[in-house]
């Protein structure tokens, strides 16, 4: 899951509401625990979470900054950074604008009343999972965008009122990578398919099908004793292997550029896809990382102060009255 600023803010607000509800429940059942104190303790954890998140973003930022950019033709398996031009593998059209692209992400939000304020609530979102090529001066490689953190400039944003004058306002946003656009990818390069494993699986499937087809299976019963001996089974396996070989020869050869792909790895989860250059990506991540650290530190300090004030260690007016804020 990618923690955007908006998602983090929602988590923060959600945690506060959850804590408030928990505090109310505790108040109803015992009256021993203050709602405000529970809010304080939980928000200390929220602050700590922001600090951990900040460190995580900074780790990714350093990984990108310290990995040199590879060339496609000589890229090694494992964590790699590539930069080039986006090229389509198959035609793709973005859902909101109908524009041709190689990758899209969209978000539809609706304006809803929340207490005294209004907020935008997500009603629909999605992204394409169709691979596309990244091409540099030495070749091209498949990019599997599934599970990637995309850092893209918004290509389309429009707010419309749905269902006439009385309808709710909806905001449509779309981010996309178009054919020929420069792209930067940091991810894990891996073989798309293991030819030996694939051959083994297909052979197993063929032999299973042969076992189910009694009539065909008995055609290998050369001594006509009504049972398939070890030698007869070996002959059947050889025939299946020959058939598989003929099928593979007649199939269209796999293009070299379709053999490997860059995407999200199993060990290293960092997978960033962007239409900005490496330095802009690194700067953005550094800002987010240090921002989270400072924010987390601020939240933790503020709430510690409130908790200490509630405990009588600091003047009482420093305690934050959460129940007044949420009521």
């Amino acid at each position: 899951m990618t923690f955007t600023f908006k998602r983090t803010r929602r988590l923060f607000v959600g945690a506060c509401f959850a804590v408030f509800a928990l505090g109310q429940a505790l108040h109803l059942f015992g009256g021993q625990v203050s709602v405000d104190a529970v809010c304080d303790v939980t928000l200390i954890f929220v602050g700590a979470g922001l600090i951990v998140y900040g460190f995580n973003v900074l780790r990714e930022e350093r990984l990108i900054a310290d990995t040199p950019t590879s060339r496609v033709r000589s890229v090694a398996m494992g964590v790699a950074e590539l930069a080039g031009i986006a090229r389509e593998k198959l035609p793709l059209v973005s859902p909101l604008t109908g524009a041709g692209c190689v990758y899209y992400r969209y978000l539809v939000e609706e304006e809803r009343q929340s207490g005294r304020s209004k907020e935008w609530v997500t009603v629909d979102q999605g992204e394409s999972s169709q691979p596309f090529y990244l091409e540099d001066e030495t070749g091209r490689i498949l990019v599997d965008p599934d599970g990637g953190e995309t850092i893209l400039n918004c290509a389309y944003r429009e707010t419309k009122r749905e269902g006439g004058w009385l309808g709710r306002r909806r905001r449509y946003s779309e981010w996309r990578i178009t054919q020929g656009q420069p792209v930067f990818v940091m991810g894990t390069v891996r073989k798309l398919k293991d030819a030996i494993l694939e051959r083994r699986v297909r052979l197993t499937e063929k032999l299973q099908a042969l076992k189910r087809d009694k009539e065909r299976l008995m055609s290998f019963d050369t001594d006509k004793d009504g049972a398939i001996s070890g030698e007869e089974w070996e002959a059947a396996v050889r025939v299946a292997q020959d058939e598989l070989l003929r099928e593979q020869v007649s199939e269209a050869p796999v293009k070299p550029e379709d053999d490997v792909a860059i995407g999200k790895g199993d060990a290293e989860k960092t997978f960033v896809l962007s239409d900005r250059g490496e330095s802009a990506v690194v700067q953005g991540m550094a800002l987010k990382g240090y921002g989270s650290l400072v924010g987390g530190f601020g939240v933790a300090m503020l709430v510690s102060m409130s908790l200490l004030a509630r405990a009588g260690v600091l003047p009482g007016h420093l305690a934050i009255q959460w129940h007044n804020i949420f009521s």
Partner: peptide, 21 residues
């Protein structure tokens, strides 16, 4: 004073985390 101590402890944790990074 205790708030300063907490602040210093928290800052210490962040600095330690940064150095580990």
């Amino acid at each position: 004073g205790i708030l300063i101590l907490i602040g210093l402890a928290l800052a210490g944790v962040i600095v330690a985390g940064y150095l580990v990074g």
